[in-house]
Design a protein around this nucleic acid. Sequence first.
DNA 1: CTTTTAGTTTTAGCTTGCTTAAAATTTGCT
DNA 2: AGCAAATTTTAAGCAAGCTAAAACTAAAAG
Lengths: 228, 228
Amino acid sequence: MYDCLVKHQLATQDYIKSIAKLSLKEGVDVVKLKWMALKLNVTNAAVSDMVKKLVKEGLVINHAYKGIELTDQGWFMGRRLIRHHRLWEVFLHTTLNVPWDEIHEEAEHLEHAASDALMNRIDEYLGFPTTDPHGNPIPNGDGTLSFNANEQSLNNVSDGEDYVVTRFESLDATYLQYLTHHGFAIGVSVKVVKRFDFDHSVLIDMAGGSLQLSYQISQQIFVVKSMD
Amino acid sequence: MYDCLVKHQLATQDYIKSIAKLSLKEGVDVVKLKWMALKLNVTNAAVSDMVKKLVKEGLVINHAYKGIELTDQGWFMGRRLIRHHRLWEVFLHTTLNVPWDEIHEEAEHLEHAASDALMNRIDEYLGFPTTDPHGNPIPNGDGTLSFNANEQSLNNVSDGEDYVVTRFESLDATYLQYLTHHGFAIGVSVKVVKRFDFDHSVLIDMAGGSLQLSYQISQQIFVVKSMD
DNA sequence: CTTTTAGTTTTAGCTTGCTTAAAATTTGCT
DNA sequence: AGCAAATTTTAAGCAAGCTAAAACTAAAAG
Ligand SMILES: [Mn+2]
Ligand SMILES: [Mn+2]
Ligand SMILES: [Mn+2]
Ligand SMILES: [Mn+2]
């Protein structure tokens, strides 16, 4: 089964991976075609066209005018690509010291080029990591993917309590550079000291001092309660 | 927009690399379209068609009905891809222990997926190797490629003298398995003890004993005079 | 219930890279 | 030189992925 999924076109792979990622991120089964078009930087028509092919291949179900949903086979393929992508990111970051904000773009291409056998070797070489350098969980070789259920957006946590950064949602290079510059990284301790209702920004306390984060930014930083 | 470029580039890259490799292997500047068609497993018409596009991009010169030749720009692109391919082969073999006969196929895909910056990091990580695991020289980052001028085909060397294996021309998996099985590897000592004119096969002496090699096989093994 | 708006689908047409078939050209052999 | 074989080129056509623009659907607002 795996092999027949492997030899798909590059475009097919990117579409399926995008559906899987949008579905996970938004917490819904049915994904709007519009979201796909925005994410892949193509027209709605291109997505609608491709959906027909993906349906024919048994990878997605089209709920006409409502959105699309991955089949089991589609989910399998999606998780496989997410696995490849995140393993490459760990490899690039820990073994080759490629900067944090460059690994995503490089992995975007490598994810399609390596066989499952090679990815398993890399997985082993890296000591079977469970998350990528941005804190995202790495699916297993058998196609399963687990989440951190305790994770919350930094924008939603209780004021005054201590939290630890576990994950950064966006992978945009300038966003990551901004966070790095202000001392953010996986494992860093943070606390919300003030909350501004008019623009939903938050004032954060962390080791380096305090810092005000816009809604857009704080929303993309995920944390868990500190165990101290 | 998206990755329509990638697909175009992928085909272009494989064509250019093939011209470069055939040119080097055959020791000529002008390559027959027929050779390309055989190597890439497409029709002559497909090659002829693609040549028009490559000419338009300034990568090749078409000597009508006689064959094609790379421009300086084409050579630069060709050596770049050969560099990527061979660096990946070294990495796969020495760092991840991927078997000798599997690395070529895997590198065939990875060569298109990594940036120059990444390949330079891998080059450094590997300690700037000069040859790939099959003994082929690795072009430098600046696009230069040097050869071992003393190298000779095992089929052409003087009888009774000692030689050391430096390179295997063919990359076919079963051919490489055959050689490994009989004790061949880069650096192994060999001597031609007998030569059969009727089929141009040769009888070889090596550490493991003696072995008779067909013309097709001995021709693809390259050696230099032993320095003992 | 009708209108507005946001999102989806269809239609027509483009480029790339391939195919087969046929025509053009070169090369090799008597 | 003359002819046949091999090679290259052209021609016509197909599938994948894209675009722009028009047609359509569903749901919210009036
Ligand atoms: Mn990423
Ligand atoms: Mn990708
Ligand atoms: Mn190779
Ligand atoms: Mn290749």
